[in-house]
Amino acid sequence: MAKTDQNLGDGLDKLRGELGNYVGARVGHLADAAGDKLAGVTDKLLDSAESGGSLLPGLNMKSLLGAGAKSIKDSVVDKAKGVFGGKGKRKSGTTKVMNIIEVLDVGVPIRTAYDHWTQYEKFSSFTKGVRDASKDDEINSAWKVKVGPSTRSWKGKVQEQVPDDRIIWTSEGAKGTTRGCVSFHELAPALTRIVLVVEYYPSGFFEKTGNIWRAQGRRLRLDFKHFQRYVTLTAEEPEGWRGEIRDGEVVRTHEEALEDEESADQDENAEDEYDEDVADEEEDDEEDDAPEDAYEEDEDVEDEEEDEGADRRG
C-alpha cells in the first residue's frame, strides 16, 4: 500500500511539472503574439509623455507620468520578469542588449552584393522598415526606420569599410544605439554569402519594454530578406562606393579606388597579352624548326644513296 501511494505521489509530481511547462510555454507564446501591439502602445505613451501631449482631451500625459513613472516602470518590469522566468533585479544602470546574427546567400557576384549595400539611399525603395536614408558624407549617414507604429531616427557612422569585404558601423539615436558589422564572402563566381551582426542597446523605459518582444530584431530580419530578394532579382547595375575607411577616417577615396582598380585591370590585361605573345612565338618557333629537320633528313638520305652508288661502282 505504501509503495502504491509513493508511485501515485510521484505520478502527481510529474503531472504537475508537465502542466507547469505547458502553461509556461503557452504564456510565452501569447506574450510574443501580443508583443507588437504592446510595443506600439508603449511607444505612443512615451512619445506623448516626452512631447507633453495627451492621448485624451484634457489629460496631460507628462504630468500624469511625471511622479509615478518610476513606480509604473518597476511594476511592469517585475511582472515581465515573472512571466519570462527572470530572477532577481537587474543592477541599476545596466542595459539589456539585443544580439542579432543573420546569414543570407544572394545569387550575384561579391562585388555586386557589396555595391548594392553601399547605396543606402535606395534602401527605402525595397524595404518596409527604412523610411528614409541619406549620406551626409562618406562616413556619416542619417536614418529613419519604422518599428511597429512608430518611427525611429539614428545617426550612423562608419568605423571601418573595406570594399568587397566588410563594413563596421555605430549609430546613435534618442531611443537607442547600435553597433554592427556586415561582411561579404564569395562562395562561387555568382554566389555571395552575407553575414550581418548587430548589437542593439535600447534607451528609455518603453523602448526597453519593447525590446522584450524583439520587435526591432524582427524588423531588421525582414528587411534583410527584402535586400536579398531585391539584389538577387534586380537587373540594375549598382554604382557602389569603393573607398576605404579605417578607424572612422577615409584612407582611400572613391576616385582613388577606381583609379587603382583601373590600373590593376590594365596590368592584368598587359600580362595576358604578354602571355599570348609568348605562346604565339613558341608556336612560330616550332613551325620554323619542323621544315629544317625535314630538310636535314632529306639531305642525309641523299648522302646515303650517293655512298651506296659509289660502293657499287667500285
Rank of each mutant, 00 (worst) to 15 (best):
K157Y: 08
G93P: 05
R152N: 07
A39P: 00
G148C: 05
F126T: 04
L64I: 13
A34H: 04
D5E: 14
T253H: 05
P149K: 03
R26Y: 07
L64M: 14
V182W: 06
R313E: 14
N21I: 01
W241V: 01
L30N: 05
P202V: 10
G180Y: 09
A235Y: 00
F224A: 15
E186I: 03
S263R: 14
D43S: 15
V106N: 08
R16T: 08
A133C: 03
G148M: 04
A215V: 15
E237F: 06
E286D: 15
S54V: 03
E308M: 08
D47H: 10
S141M: 01
A279T: 12
T118R: 01
R26S: 13
E304Q: 13
E286Q: 12
L19F: 02
N269G: 06
S263T: 10
A39L: 01
K91R: 13
Y22L: 15
G85Q: 10
A34D: 05
K96H: 11
R16K: 15
V231A: 11
D43W: 15
V83A: 10
Q266P: 00
Q159T: 11
L19T: 05
E50T: 12
H226W: 02
L30I: 07
W117A: 01
G248F: 08
D307H: 03
K3L: 12
Y295G: 00
S63N: 08
I245G: 08
I167C: 05
D132H: 13
K208T: 14
L187M: 09
A31D: 06
K3G: 07
G243R: 01
D115V: 05
A113P: 08
A80G: 14
E160M: 09
S150A: 14
A133P: 00
N60R: 14
V106E: 08
V158Q: 10
T253V: 05
K73F: 10
V76T: 15
W117S: 07
A215L: 13
F206K: 05
D136V: 15
T42A: 13
V147C: 06
E262G: 02
W213T: 12
M98N: 08
Q228M: 07
R221S: 09
A49S: 11
A235N: 13
D132Q: 07
Q6G: 00
I245W: 12
R221Y: 02
K128R: 13
A113H: 07
D265G: 02
V147K: 01
W213Y: 15
E296I: 09
S134L: 01
D288I: 00
E304P: 04
L12Q: 04
N21F: 04
V145H: 06
V162F: 04
I101K: 15
R131C: 03
E207T: 14
S203T: 10
K70P: 00
A49V: 11
G35V: 03
G314W: 04
K87L: 13
D164W: 06
D13F: 12
I212N: 11
E244H: 07
A33F: 02
K91P: 01
G82A: 11
G24L: 03
P57A: 07
R218D: 06
A69Q: 09
W213C: 07
D105V: 14
F227V: 01
G217Y: 06
S203N: 12
V83F: 12
F84C: 02
V145E: 03
E287I: 08
S75H: 09
V278Y: 03
E283N: 12
T178L: 08
E304F: 09
D43N: 13
D10G: 08
D277Q: 11
V106H: 07
T178I: 03
E172V: 13
K96T: 09
A31L: 10
